[in-house]
């Protein structure tokens, strides 16, 4: 891959992140109210104490440039401020504790959805009109049109409440499962993970399979597929070495763009299963008006979307020689 392509993409991503950081500052300053108003809820607060607080928080300085510069400096040094809700804990610490559950849940869900969704879609498109296509396409449409929380509640109702196969909520059994050894801890974690991951995967499979199906069907109609048939290749080889490399291109784009929405949708899945990730944290922070934490989540999610897009661009560059030049 050309290094110029790589540099261009990385520089583009950095610029986007910088714009997001600025926007993150502006958006939250545009919200009604001000942090010092919270102090006014206390009837005994004095004007001096108010002024002192304003100086301490830097609110006495003009918004632009002083506050913006302060904000940029601290953001760059990894200081995202302090949480209101979690007793003044640094926002970075609050986020750090919640990132991994979300990454594991959605990372695994995405991977499963990509594997099964793309495989189902590719097969349906290849054997268009066959039984797998009819059933697969129908089921995919239904799943595609269902919001995560509906899928989550159905799964929860059947497998946790009805059949008691899996725990209903959380990431680990509260108070420990009685055995602290690593294997049993892991098993406990996986048991808790199973239903939410399935929910995420199912929610995405329909979408990916429908996209992949239409992409494969479109690709199979291309002239170079006729050429491949003319060359006497078996249909399996035509699919593998001519159709799929081309059909995957739109899928890569969709998956990357989707990642933003996926994390948005994450909130509902995490809430349904009470999964201690960024989704539940968002809800908690919203309820408590914990602006610094919200700001941190906002920044983190934006950056992950940008990074996902960057990765998609790089994969796209590998898959499609046309975008490199």
């Amino acid at each position: 891959m050309g290094s110029r392509y790589l540099i261009r993409k990385v520089v583009g991503a950095c610029l986007t992140i910088f714009m997001i950081v600025i926007l993150n500052f502006v958006l939250f300053r545009m919200m009604p109210g001000s942090p010092d108003r919270i102090l006014l809820r206390n009837p005994n607060v004095t004007a001096d104490a108010m002024a002192a607080a304003r100086i301490r928080w830097g609110l006495d300085k003009p918004l632009i440039p002083d506050q913006l510069v302060d904000y940029l400096e601290s953001t760059a040094s990894g200081d995202l401020g302090f949480s209101f809700k979690f007793h003044g804990e640094p926002v970075t610490d609050v986020l750090a504790g919640r990132i991994w559950p979300t990454v594991i849940l959605f990372g695994l869900g995405e991977v499963l959805a990509i594997i099964f969704g793309l495989a189902l879609g590719a097969y349906s498109g290849w054997r268009r009109g066959g039984p797998i296509d009819y059933i697969g396409n129908g089921v995919s449409l239904i799943l595609y049109s269902m919001p995560y929380f509906v899928i989550g509640i159905l799964i929860l109702g059947v497998f946790a409440i009805g059949l008691h196969w899996f725990p209903t909520s959380g990431m680990l059994t509260v108070g420990g499962s009685g055995d602290d050894s690593f294997p049993s801890q892991l098993l406990d974690f996986l048991g808790h993970l199973a239903l939410p991951v399935t929910t995420v995967a199912i929610g995405l499979i329909g979408q990916y399979s429908i996209l992949m199906r239409s992409s494969v069907i479109e690709t199979l109609g291309e002239d170079y597929i006729t050429t491949a048939r003319g060359k006497g290749l078996t249909s399996g080889r035509i699919l593998r070495s001519h159709a799929l490399p081309n059909a995957l291109l739109p899928a890569v784009t969709l998956i990357a763009i989707n990642l933003g929405y996926v994390i948005g949708g994450a909130i509902t899945v995490e809430v349904v299963f009470n999964w201690p990730g960024l989704g539940t944290l968002t809800v908690t922070a919203l309820e408590a008006r914990d602006y610094p934490v919200l700001q941190g989540i906002f920044l983190l999610l934006s950056i992950s979307v940008v990074v996902a897009n960057l990765i998609a661009d790089l994969i796209y560059g590998r898959l499609d020689p046309r975008v490199r030049s």
Binding site: D223, Y224, T226, A228, G230, G232, T234, P245, L319
Partner: peptide
């Protein structure tokens, strides 16, 4: 029949832009 394709009867398609696979 597959064994005869291209081996014995090959085709120069029109519009080589589309008849050649763009990613190979």
């Amino acid at each position: 029949l597959r064994r005869y394709r291209w081996r014995e009867i090959s085709i120069i398609f029109q519009g080589a832009m589309n008849a050649l696979n763009p990613v190979r």
